[in-house]
Design a binder for these strands. Sequence first.
DNA 1: TAGAAGTTTCAGAAATTTTTGAAACTTCTG
DNA 2: CAGAAGTTTCAAAAATTTCTGAAACTTCTA
Lengths: 177, 177
Amino acid sequence: MTRSHPLPESDLLAADAVGDVIEHWGFRKALGRIWTVLYLAGGPLSAAELRERLQMSAGAVSMSVGELQRWGVVRRVWRPGERKEHFEAETDFWKMISRVIRERERALVSSVRERLARACELMRREGGDPRRLQRARKLLTFATVAEAVIGSFVTSGRADFSQFGNLLTLVRPAGRN
Amino acid sequence: MTRSHPLPESDLLAADAVGDVIEHWGFRKALGRIWTVLYLAGGPLSAAELRERLQMSAGAVSMSVGELQRWGVVRRVWRPGERKEHFEAETDFWKMISRVIRERERALVSSVRERLARACELMRREGGDPRRLQRARKLLTFATVAEAVIGSFVTSGRADFSQFGNLLTLVRPAGRN
DNA sequence: TAGAAGTTTCAGAAATTTTTGAAACTTCTG
DNA sequence: CAGAAGTTTCAAAAATTTCTGAAACTTCTA
């Protein structure tokens, strides 16, 4: 049985900070806190330990580690002789970030691009003010560029966007830099 | 009085797509829809027109355009002879994006960096497993790099991250790419 | 294989966010 | 200056998200 283990202040601070980042990325704050506690722990913890340290219900821990696993951010590990499941944090930041971008950001931007394309097509057929269509096309171009940038970011494994400089400029009005 | 003007399907499609992007960035979906309607309209619209086209309450329109103005994404324009206020969309994508990043993303990452630094400091004093401190420091390094990258992005006006390649690598484990 | 240990599920509770609608307020006009 | 037109504010309602806790389920052990 696990001894009581009131998370030290320093861990709380870090976990909460990471929680904010993760929330900003559209996940539940709890996911970020759990990952951080596992990461700082340096080794696998059981669901019960997480529960205890983060004061969550059994259900919340179960759902959260489930989601974290689906995102490849936490792994389930088997400890010989232990009855409980244990969980450990993925430590490769790049792996985690690129996966989220690949699966989520990409899906969003591609869906947006598709819908904008459909909107342009509709407008074209409807006829009417050509400048309106022009503006819609500008939105579409932007989405297309964004998609390309994200794709390159994910596949190159590098945060080097310079090759897209001209495309980005394309979208911006003439002036400035 | 404004004639009824049921937003064409194409506009709805586009507005909703942009709404999703904006929601992803942590704003209300309605803000994205309003901006898009204004953007596609190509010229100023009154609150009543927005209200009508987007089927929102007077209060919601007022609050939304207020927020959009605070973010510099929509401007209030005065039309001589008109009693109503009118609003028009900012059209410089870069201006809008960089401002949001400057004011919001930056605030987040800097707050996170500060808190992580505080957590490291606490850990150092508390003593205990030095590897734990090491891990916390790694988080801090990452936040510091992220802050630098964002800063450069905003000030250079360019999506060129290449100069940070080595720093990013610093944070990643040895292997790969 | 009975039962203990551990985990997942999910309906409802709680918390949070967003919207409404109407009153208060402001600004114009005759 | 009275009142009409337009806008903002904000408390309460509605919608949405997240969490809880207990029952159902699974897996291991004796």
